[in-house]
Write a protein that binds this DNA or RNA. Structure first.
Lengths: 129, 129
DNA sequence: CCACTCCTACGAAACCTTTCGTAATCTAAT
DNA sequence: ATTAGATTACGAAAGGTTTCGTAGGAGTGG
């Protein structure tokens, strides 16, 4: 139990995890191609990062022919929550509402999204009664 | 301009910044004492970290007698926003509303705080009309 | 069979962060 | 004046992250 306590992907690892959450499964080549649309990075760099992630248990892999197919081994929501918890503690004094206000304040969020959030808040209020 | 682009305090630096935002000004000894209430850490470790922060421009200092008095050189809100922007980009695909939902979902936020957030959303909706 | 390409594995360099030991300086007290 | 205490500055070790070069195995076309 409690595997959540140890979620701490690095920047590079998060970049790859985001791709895997989107794609479900992917080869090193596919991942590297996607990243290279944004910035130049060597194939072996991406490979090495993924290998380290495999050792850490952040991704799973399956041998297909001579190459591997990778998929995320940690859930997106858990990872997101861990990241939030971290900055909540390290910069927001633990106050989730401060964080939310800051996140909404400086960002252009669409009316539709604001509505969704409002609905969620109302649901939370109802549940706590 | 654009000094905000470079805000990237490390974990240890954030710990110290949080103290300085709270205390306005403090000496190395004071900061080290506060941190030591939570965890053991050598005086020179804290000193070194603060010296590095000074070199990076994260804190200001003033010579008072033989010692220095430090204060934060970057604003709390700007730093918080930079941290949010970072995880927004690295884990939430840029969606502030996803982040907000995740932050509210798993956290016990008081009814009062939820009300505040709701008011803020309503204000944002009004402003965008 | 040979050369070429594709992939993996390994190791090392460069860089950053965290931690602390040591040395130097200055003040205050004996 | 000497010693003890406080404070700074410096440097270096240890650990983690990012990046890549090189080597080797395995399949493919000529």
């Amino acid at each position: 139990m409690d595997k959540k306590r140890n979620i701490k992907p690095t920047e590079s690892e998060l970049e790859i995890l985001q791709i895997l959450w989107e794609e479900e499964t992917a080869t090193v080549k596919e991942i590297n191609d996607i990243i290279n649309k944004r910035k130049p990075i060597g194939y072996t760099t991406t490979l090495k990062t993924i290998q380290i992630m495999f050792e850490k248990g952040l991704v799973k892999r399956e041998k297909v022919g001579r190459s591997h197919t990778y998929s995320a081994a940690i859930k997106k929501e858990e990872t997101q929550q861990a990241l939030i918890d971290k900055i909540l503690d390290s910069a927001f004094g633990g106050s989730a509402s401060n964080l939310v206000m800051q996140a909404l304040g400086n960002k252009k969020t669409s009316k539709q999204e604001l509505e969704e959030i409002k609905k969620m808040i109302e649901k939370l209020e109802r549940d706590s009664e």
